[in-house]
């Protein structure tokens, strides 16, 4: 340690020197291996979407596409799998959840970070506690409630609860503590900004990198959510894509694996697109982050 410090003092030009090229090679090799591991399931999924059920049953994993894509598509659409309806419902739920949870979580975090109020710490502790309750059991109470008030088959029952997303509040708060200086809010007040105006015009833009990351997670989670929608949505017109895929798997005695993989691919595709769109903000976050001074 002492040695390196000395070295730095001796050679302060180190920053101009290129890093060890061998290390750079190692970095690229690691990244490429991780890339292969990460895309493996997608390749298998897409390839299997073109294979027949019997081919898949004989060899579950293959990298060679086959010729049963249209056959699988035919089976898929004949089995109460309606991509259009499923896509619309999934979209409504996921976009609704994401927008509500992002806006209100950031709002709550802002309330917790910027203002000083008596119950502030109690409120934050409560939100943390909520986050820690094992969800397995409480969901049953929720189902019971929704059935009792006869609100099954309302997509809103999946969307509105997203306002209270404790772990996202936690993230937003943690991020805001570091990224939103109080002086900025003060300055805006002096300029005559109203509180909601300051939140919408100053706080939200600064939070963009955090919002982009959380938006992706929230969107992915609600897009893939299966169990709760499955219990609360019993009308086929309200089914989301994962429910439809689950129905394909429903008959274990004669499962059409080819069309299941096709269904899975179709479910994952919009997700990947949304992700790629949002990921632009993550990558471009450097500039956004530096707004703050």
């Amino acid at each position: 340690m002492a040695d390196t410090e000395k070295k730095i003092k001796v050679a302060p030009v180190a920053k101009k020197v290129n890093h060890n090229p061998a290390l750079k090679v190692v970095i690229y090799i690691v990244c490429i291996i991780l890339t292969l591991l990460s895309i493996m399931p997608f390749v298998i999924m897409l390839v299997n979407a073109t294979r027949s059920t019997n081919e898949i049953q004989a060899h579950a994993v293959s990298l060679i596409p086959s010729k049963y894509f249209f056959n699988n598509l035919k089976i898929l659409t004949s089995k109460s799998f309606d991509p259009k309806v499923g896509f619309m419902n999934s979209m409504i739920v996921s976009v609704g959840c994401t927008v509500l949870s992002i806006y209100f979580s950031t709002l709550t975090a802002y309330g917790l970070v910027i203002y000083d109020w008596k119950l502030k710490n109690a409120a934050f502790r409560f939100i943390m506690a909520v986050m820690m309750i094992p969800a397995q059991l409480t969901t049953i109470g929720f189902y019971q409630m929704v059935y009792k008030i006869h609100m099954t088959n309302h997509l809103s029952m999946l969307i509105i609860p997203a306002i209270a997303n404790s772990s996202m509040v936690f993230f937003m708060r943690q991020y805001m503590v570091g990224a939103l200086p109080y002086e900025l809010v003060q300055a805006a007040r002096i300029d005559g900004g109203k509180e909601f105006y300051i939140y919408n015009k100053i706080a939200l833009p600064i939070m963009k990198p955090a919002i982009a990351t959380q938006a992706i997670f929230s969107f992915v989670t609600s897009w893939n959510n299966l169990f709760t929608p499955m219990i609360l949505l019993t009308d086929q017109k309200k089914y989301t894509l994962p429910i439809m895929v689950s129905l394909l798997r429903g008959d274990i005695y004669r499962t059409e694996f080819g069309s299941i993989y096709l269904g899975l691919s179709m479910t994952a595709l919009p997700l990947i697109i949304v992700y790629l769109i949002l990921s632009k903000y993550i990558i471009a976050g450097v500039a956004l982050g530096s707004v703050k001074g």
Partner: peptide
């Protein structure tokens, strides 16, 4: 790479 590494989290 960032985009790719997150992909395993997308599938159910």
């Amino acid at each position: 790479f960032k985009v790719i590494f997150y992909l395993p989290n997308i599938i159910t």
